[in-house]
Measured scan of single mutants.
Amino acid sequence: MEVVDPQQLGMFTEGELMSVGMDTFIHRIDSTEVIYQPRRKRAKLIGKYLMGDLLGEGSYGKVKEVLDSETLCRRAVKILKKKKLRRIPNGEANVKKEIQLLRRLRHKNVIQLVDVLYNEEKQKMYMVMEYCVCGMQEMLDSVPEKRFPVCQAHGYFCQLIDGLEYLHSQGIVHKDIKPGNLLLTTGGTLKISDLGVAEALHPFAADDTCRTSQGSPAFQPPEIANGLDTFSGFKVDIWSAGVTLYNITTGLYPFEGDNIYKLFENIGKGSYAIPGDCGPPLSDLLKGMLEYEPAKRFSIRQIRQHSWFRKKHPPAEAPVPIPPSPDTKDRWRSMTVVPYLEDLHGADEDEDLFDIEDDIIYTQDFTVPGQVPEEEASHNGQRRGLPKAVCMNGTEAAQLSTKSRAEGRAPNPARKACSASSKIRRLSACKQQ
């Protein structure tokens, strides 16, 4: 084909351009004929944790799935940006308080904090938690009735009371019990989460009196709706648990309003109706937990002794299953770290194939690490110290990083047969305790 000078094309009309061969290198194709290559998922490591896909996002930050490269346990990490926390009232204080509380709590029905990582340079905090497959609110939203069968609701409620009793025994008032803060594992274990607005009572406090509340409006008791200066913290949790039980068994809320002012007005009056299909035992329990006067409201001991709580409820309806993943529609909620794991395991070791967030990740503290002497050669063979940054567990980050890069360049065919977990650990520049 004859090559045409581009400067001469402006002298031709459209018809003349076609005659000189423009149609031979300008093609129009339908979008259905285009085959897009999927974007390669680059592996990203935060300390010893391999990052997966997004699980959810809230006002405080994002939650992603991660894999512990040492234990191969599935975890969830809450990623918090200090810049964003400053824009939220009491944001930083709530996060630090939640970390302090979770560090000393150990119960099967309370979410466990596994690790805390802090990135000084990017001003990011990573709260590594045990993995929960789904939230209770997500399960309720997945069915038209917006409720659980009585047998399933009873099982979840009993676990909620177990976890709540443990928190109260530790002198902690949750203040925000609701389905949105109750998570579930694949085995059906309920976990109380989000202790950001919780309050730890003084060890020598005479009672459970509280003065502040930041919980969700629909789950607040009349004493808070009416603006009382002080109130019983434990009875606030009992009320919120009662509203939660009402919601998961009926699909409704005892109090509603077009806006928060109308909602608080209705809560302050204390008038509500219980659907007739709840039955006398459940209705009596709800009335005891939603008692207007805090002094007359049920205690956890009274809830445990109630006939509806103690009764064994046979399954009359099919239980609400864990819904498919909202993004991938995966009904099994498979591990989202698998594509990243395959990338590390299947590809040659190259620095361009993975990302390490930083050479140094500070753990379990908000301060910069200490310094240790770096050896410097002298005339008599002895070495003197220069400062060298280290990880919180004493690992020399720069030395590990250099060693990792040197190993990656060394030709050794046997290394390709290593397991995925050992490869992740070798790529991680800074081991965590």
Results as ranks from 00 to 15, higher is better:
3 V>F: 06
3 V>M: 03
3 V>L: 03
4 V>L: 05
6 P>A: 05
6 P>V: 12
6 P>D: 15
9 L>S: 11
10 G>I: 15
13 T>C: 14
14 E>K: 02
16 E>L: 07
17 L>R: 08
20 V>C: 01
22 M>S: 15
22 M>H: 15
24 T>Y: 12
30 D>P: 15
30 D>C: 12
31 S>W: 05
31 S>I: 11
32 T>A: 15
33 E>A: 10
33 E>C: 07
35 I>F: 05
37 Q>L: 07
39 R>V: 08
41 K>T: 09
43 A>L: 14
44 K>D: 04
44 K>Y: 12
47 G>A: 11
48 K>A: 04
48 K>D: 10
49 Y>I: 09
49 Y>Q: 01
50 L>C: 11
53 D>V: 03
53 D>W: 01
60 Y>V: 03
61 G>Y: 01
63 V>R: 00
64 K>V: 11
66 V>A: 11
67 L>V: 05
73 C>S: 11
75 R>T: 04
79 I>L: 02
80 L>H: 04
81 K>F: 05
81 K>Y: 09
81 K>L: 07
81 K>V: 05
83 K>W: 13
86 R>A: 09
88 I>D: 14
89 P>I: 11
89 P>N: 15
90 N>L: 06
94 N>Q: 08
95 V>S: 11
97 K>T: 10
98 E>Q: 01
99 I>V: 04
103 R>K: 08
105 L>Y: 10
106 R>Y: 15
107 H>S: 04
107 H>G: 04
108 K>W: 04
109 N>A: 03
111 I>F: 02
112 Q>Y: 06
114 V>L: 01
117 L>N: 12
118 Y>H: 07
118 Y>V: 06
120 E>M: 07
121 E>L: 12
122 K>M: 09
123 Q>L: 03
126 Y>G: 03
131 Y>E: 01
133 V>C: 10
133 V>T: 06
134 C>W: 01
134 C>F: 02
134 C>L: 02
136 M>K: 01
137 Q>L: 09
139 M>C: 09
140 L>W: 00
142 S>A: 15
144 P>M: 08
145 E>S: 12
145 E>D: 07
146 K>E: 07
146 K>H: 12
146 K>L: 07
147 R>T: 00
148 F>N: 01
149 P>R: 02
149 P>V: 03
151 C>S: 07
153 A>G: 07
154 H>L: 01
155 G>R: 03
157 F>G: 00
159 Q>C: 05
160 L>H: 01
160 L>A: 06
164 L>T: 04
165 E>M: 01
168 H>M: 02
170 Q>E: 01
172 I>S: 02
174 H>V: 03
175 K>Y: 03
175 K>G: 04
176 D>I: 00
176 D>F: 00
177 I>V: 06
178 K>C: 05
181 N>L: 00
183 L>V: 08
186 T>P: 13
190 L>A: 02
191 K>T: 08
195 L>S: 05
196 G>A: 02
198 A>V: 11
198 A>G: 09
198 A>F: 03
199 E>H: 11
203 P>S: 15
209 T>M: 12
209 T>V: 11
210 C>W: 03
211 R>A: 09
212 T>R: 12
214 Q>N: 09
215 G>I: 05
215 G>H: 05
215 G>Y: 07
216 S>E: 00
220 Q>K: 03
220 Q>G: 04
220 Q>S: 08
221 P>R: 01
222 P>H: 01
222 P>G: 02
223 E>H: 08
223 E>D: 05
225 A>P: 09
226 N>R: 13
231 F>S: 02
232 S>D: 07
235 K>G: 09
239 W>V: 00
242 G>V: 00
244 T>N: 01
245 L>Q: 02
247 N>C: 07
248 I>M: 09
250 T>W: 12
252 L>Y: 01
255 F>R: 03
260 I>S: 12
262 K>R: 08
262 K>I: 04
263 L>A: 02
265 E>M: 09
266 N>E: 01
267 I>V: 07
268 G>A: 05
268 G>Y: 10
271 S>L: 11
271 S>P: 01
273 A>D: 05
274 I>A: 05
275 P>K: 12
276 G>T: 08
276 G>E: 14
279 G>A: 06
282 L>I: 04
283 S>W: 04
285 L>I: 05
290 L>Y: 00
292 Y>S: 09
294 P>N: 02
295 A>H: 11
297 R>K: 00
301 R>V: 15
301 R>A: 14
302 Q>V: 08
307 S>W: 12
309 F>G: 00
311 K>I: 09
316 A>M: 06
316 A>P: 03
316 A>Q: 13
317 E>V: 10
317 E>D: 14
320 V>P: 14
323 P>L: 05
323 P>N: 13
324 P>K: 03
325 S>W: 03
325 S>Q: 11
327 D>R: 15
329 K>W: 03
329 K>I: 09
330 D>T: 14
330 D>Q: 01
330 D>L: 14
331 R>P: 13
331 R>G: 11
333 R>D: 15
334 S>C: 01
342 E>V: 12
344 L>T: 14
345 H>G: 12
347 A>Y: 10
347 A>R: 13
349 E>R: 11
349 E>P: 11
355 D>W: 14
358 D>N: 04
359 D>A: 11
362 Y>C: 10
363 T>H: 08
367 T>P: 11
368 V>D: 13
371 Q>V: 12
371 Q>L: 12
372 V>H: 15
373 P>E: 13
375 E>F: 09
377 A>K: 15
381 G>D: 14
384 R>V: 09
386 L>P: 03
387 P>S: 11
388 K>Y: 06
389 A>Y: 07
391 C>F: 05
394 G>F: 08
394 G>D: 10
395 T>E: 10
396 E>I: 14
397 A>P: 08
399 Q>R: 04
402 T>E: 14
403 K>H: 13
406 A>S: 11
407 E>T: 15
408 G>M: 14
409 R>K: 11
410 A>N: 10
412 N>Q: 11
412 N>S: 12
412 N>Y: 13
413 P>L: 10
417 A>F: 07
417 A>D: 11
418 C>M: 13
421 S>T: 07
425 R>H: 14
425 R>I: 05
427 L>V: 08
427 L>C: 03
431 K>Y: 12
431 K>C: 14
432 Q>G: 15
